[in-house]
Design a binder for these strands. Sequence first.
DNA 1: ATTGAAACGAACGATGG
DNA 2: CCATCGTTCGTTTCAAT
Lengths: 154, 154
Amino acid sequence: MDELDSQIVEHLQREARITNRDLAHRLGIAPSTCLERTRALRNRGVITGFHAAVDLRSMGRPVQALLSIQVRPLSRDVIEGFKTYVSALPEVLSVFVVAGSDDFLVHVAVPDVDQLHTFLMDRFSQRREIVNFRSSVIYQHVANQVISPLDGVE
Amino acid sequence: MDELDSQIVEHLQREARITNRDLAHRLGIAPSTCLERTRALRNRGVITGFHAAVDLRSMGRPVQALLSIQVRPLSRDVIEGFKTYVSALPEVLSVFVVAGSDDFLVHVAVPDVDQLHTFLMDRFSQRREIVNFRSSVIYQHVANQVISPLDGVE
DNA sequence: ATTGAAACGAACGATGG
DNA sequence: CCATCGTTCGTTTCAAT
């Protein structure tokens, strides 16, 4: 993970579909070198994949919320079971298993507030392991496009 | 946004670097049609970009946390100012502005727990607008790779 | 590890079905 | 929406350094 690798990773995080040729040109290296490096980054697991990002509004899901959930008992089975259940729901974008007063934080996107309510009723009310529950509508969400090593990582 | 569009979007969310030829072949359509559709999806803003995903561990940032922050006064200036400040910090992955008891939820990734502590002290303690603050270490994070329209979205 | 060149494959625009 | 053609452009391999 030298400076060149970092730059490749940065460029590909911004624009995954840049041609190998362009990327090489920007970095001032030969296309064959660039290809080799990029492959190595994938094989080493530094780059885990290339994904299209979509607009939630265009997908008919403009309303986002964060759900804070406490489950009991705090056993491995309950945690894993709930995590698996929740992450398979199509409304769910991502699931955090966290330390602290809440056990889960679930990020969801739905068509409207009504369907948020319906979703909560249908998918969470019956669940016996849930002992506490809060939901917060998300007004804005800003994600950092590029993740860089904070130190010099070799 | 018909069935074909949905399928294109789904495939590109999983694997953004698939060639147009391959994608067309998988969907059983002509490459020319597929290219046209894919372009239209970008131009309509349904697909917002193509990005490489990276492994946080490989980037030397294996420790993640969620910070719940309350600021005052709840004015536009304070909200916007804090949001801008926080989202520019390199440790920050994403920022949620939320309704409910907390105003912000900030997702961070750092090299270790010590540096989490240092980060909190250095970047948040001085900030006068912060009136309340909690941080939770993230044990696991599962993100849904594919986002689909929940209804039939035309 | 990096390179240049050659062979291969893909993208693209135009045309017509 | 599909098929095909032709050109341009990109990718990939590999021997050499």
